[in-house]
Design a protein around this nucleic acid. Structure first.
Lengths: 138, 138
DNA sequence: ATCTTACAATGGACATTGTCTAAGTCAAGC
DNA sequence: GCTTGACTTAGACAATGTCCATTGTAAGAT
């Protein structure tokens, strides 16, 4: 267990049983869970936790910069605990598995001024899609 | 009007009044409409057209490679008639406006083998986000 | 021109994901 | 141990999209 709970408490986050279990669910493996998956895992330990609370808590953690929202498909948003190192995503077109990746280079420098249309660009998001070894082997 | 309808007919697409108006709606300006916006514009000319038909027709046009689906936010998918020249998107973080952009370079070459995890990568999608001149001026 | 038939359109129910609200509950400070 | 404002809850609601059974029709065959 990392110091996520400590950091949150230090920021004046009111600590409730619900928030604790949500934070602990995310503070494990670097997988990319949906809100409902987080809710299911949280409910194993705190059966009465409501969906709304999970949604609220996830939204707060995103605002606090402790986790990232990832939308790689039209389905549910996923939550990425790896918020402290910039990265992009590699998604399996078959099974939807997501890996964090760290490309070299900066896509921003690939966009000439003439293609910026006066926008003040603040962020670039890159999603690689392909078939993972698991799905390809089948 | 381009030759979109001709191309579709040539591919054996059964031409109905509904499909014609949907194709014609898309065959105009290179804007990025949602399915419901397409439905609204189509209904101006064919008031009885149903939502399901618009969804079906858009899905078919995507399968045929005549238009592209774009998902730049968590809201509705948008449809991009500019399917014949590869491009990426620049999205206004305030108003959601979308522009097609053509970055130089190839993001694929920025992803070393060690970061591919055995995936057979087939596609890269780049989304630039920022504030458009309109929203910045306000 | 009419018939035939497979393919398309329709409307409405349903599914998924997420948001909102009013009322009850509780963590943390006094 | 109170008090209080923040938190949680259940369920209604919203937005987008999909599915299905029924009805309609485009286009080839006669």
């Amino acid at each position: 267990m990392s110091d996520l709970l400590e950091r949150l408490r230090g920021r004046g986050w009111r600590m409730t049983a619900q928030r604790r279990v949500v934070a602990e669910v995310l503070d494990g493996d670097h997988v990319h869970l949906t809100a409902d998956e987080v809710h299911a895992r949280a409910a194993e330990r705190l059966p009465e936790i409501s969906r709304a609370t999970v949604y609220n808590t996830l939204g707060e953690l995103v605002s606090l910069g402790e986790i990232l929202e990832v939308s790689t498909d039209r389905r549910a948003k996923r939550y990425d605990p790896n918020a402290h190192r910039p990265h992009h995503h590699l998604v399996c077109a078959r099974c939807g598995a997501i890996r964090d990746v760290h490309p070299t280079g900066n896509p921003l420098s690939d966009l000439p001024d003439s293609e910026r249309f006066g926008f003040a660009i603040s962020d670039v998001e890159v999603t690689y899609r392909g078939v993972c070894p698991n799905c390809a082997g089948a």
